[in-house]
Write a protein that binds this DNA or RNA. Sequence first.
DNA 1: CGCTCGCAATGACGATTGGTTATAGCTGCG
DNA 2: CGCAGCTATAACCAATCGTCATTGCGAGCG
Lengths: 295, 295
Amino acid sequence: MDAGDLRVFEAVARLGAMNRAAEELHTVQSNVTARIRQIETELGTALFERHSRGVVPTAAGRRLLPYAERVRLLLAEARRVVKDDGEPAGTLAIGSLETTAGLRLPPLLAQYAAAYPAVDLSLVTGTTAALVKEVLDHRLDGAFVCGPVEHDELVEERAFREELVALTSPRIASLDALFGERDLKIIVFRIGCSYRQRLEAILAGRGLIVTRSLEFGTIEGILGCVGAGIGVSLLPRAVVAEAARDGRIALHALPPAEAQVDTVFVRRRDGFASSALKAFLALARPLRVRSEAAE
Amino acid sequence: MDAGDLRVFEAVARLGAMNRAAEELHTVQSNVTARIRQIETELGTALFERHSRGVVPTAAGRRLLPYAERVRLLLAEARRVVKDDGEPAGTLAIGSLETTAGLRLPPLLAQYAAAYPAVDLSLVTGTTAALVKEVLDHRLDGAFVCGPVEHDELVEERAFREELVALTSPRIASLDALFGERDLKIIVFRIGCSYRQRLEAILAGRGLIVTRSLEFGTIEGILGCVGAGIGVSLLPRAVVAEAARDGRIALHALPPAEAQVDTVFVRRRDGFASSALKAFLALARPLRVRSEAAE
DNA sequence: CGCTCGCAATGACGATTGGTTATAGCTGCG
DNA sequence: CGCAGCTATAACCAATCGTCATTGCGAGCG
């Protein structure tokens, strides 16, 4: 039983059929059958129950499955470690909330890309929950998300502290004045956006229950909608300061307990941090200090 | 690069020569050379510097080395997990201090052996430091050692609480009376015995500096030597109670802070606990309660 | 009931890889 | 220089792996 065996085993277990596994592995069914049988005889245990519609793992197979993934991940990590000679290189996949990506990251990313041209840097945006999952599944090296996360397998460090402000149409003088409005909606980036729950809680604290919502993919979309009086949103102050100066929207400060939100950088605790990631952290950490000092 | 490749890589790195690695792997040198070269071309990096007297790992090779072991351990664990159907079976290697092995374990081991005849149980004795190392190196499933250990990779739970008593010849009325003795020695099981440091500290606290020591492999040896007035020892009360009743030696109680010692059971935190080990823990835990209640 | 569909098992065969043998080349040492 | 100890390389052999074609089996369906 070596790494190759476990790869075919994993494919069969996941797809539930040697046929499809063979297809995915770019080989033929008989080959998969033979290798599975070989592993089974080597281990002295049946790993699958064969049925006419496919195969299902036996208890032993279910026990083996997690090891197939662990071995795969470990070998992949070994390859990366061997190639990583301390000079940041290769790929670095970072995740971020939409607002953080727009507000805080551009200078950081530009600086990083200039300093380490050998790194293939990629940035994906998403919600906190989605990004955390991506990090856990080894698809992202790390992510800026809404903290705290407090997950056993992750290590997090505070990156930025934002002041959230409520956004409304310029016609609205204060949050309390929202009571008169009809058909009010919560306007957020996406379903599952981290700020959404917080906004709902803030409004609920003022006696406003708003269940309908709109999702946008861009800041501009949110600003336009809020300005038109369609709803209320919650965003970091710095993101919307300009729009407020232009009179397109009104900002409503919140008490610190409601306004303060920490953006944390999460990464996996286990395994190894590539040189590319280490360099990124080294570049990002000073920002955190500056951000704290600015308050 | 699969598991087999890593095994030959590991042998070459450890032995510092493809020649000797080939011998250990029961193959020939050219084969080892070829596989190493193949891994190197696959990874695109040299893993060894070749010299006329052998090979030394490059920086990349040194980075890869720990992964070779981790993959090996992970695959070995996978095999065990597959075979482990919940019914305790296979091997169970337990370590223990000599005194614990003699005093506490016999009924436990007998009970375990009777309840789980399918398990090939083995017990080795040694010092705390040696046993901890054996556990860390996967050579023991767990060990009873002198606590606390407080190692990141280990989980420990208190098993027994012993009262240590000082042993002297019957002629000595108290520890303070030792001042008159000449050529006094510390008598312990072995170099590195966990109780040795404690005994030295206890004597030092009474103004006695004893640097010479004797080591024995059996309780009887220690008792004989102590009884003959050659030295002083420190052992759990229960171990030596009978000898004291017979008048062969004198016991000297110590204040609780010095006398109390916890015997803890340590095992690796990571990985998995075999059914054989789980069953052992299930059997051992009630003993702990009884031991505490007896105080 | 018999047909077909989807899937696994099997056996024969070619391709690729891994292992073996023998030999050459390098380096430090007496 | 020649020896000892090591690695590199080429040629050959064996085992494994992958492929193709075929068989067998159970489920679903007309």
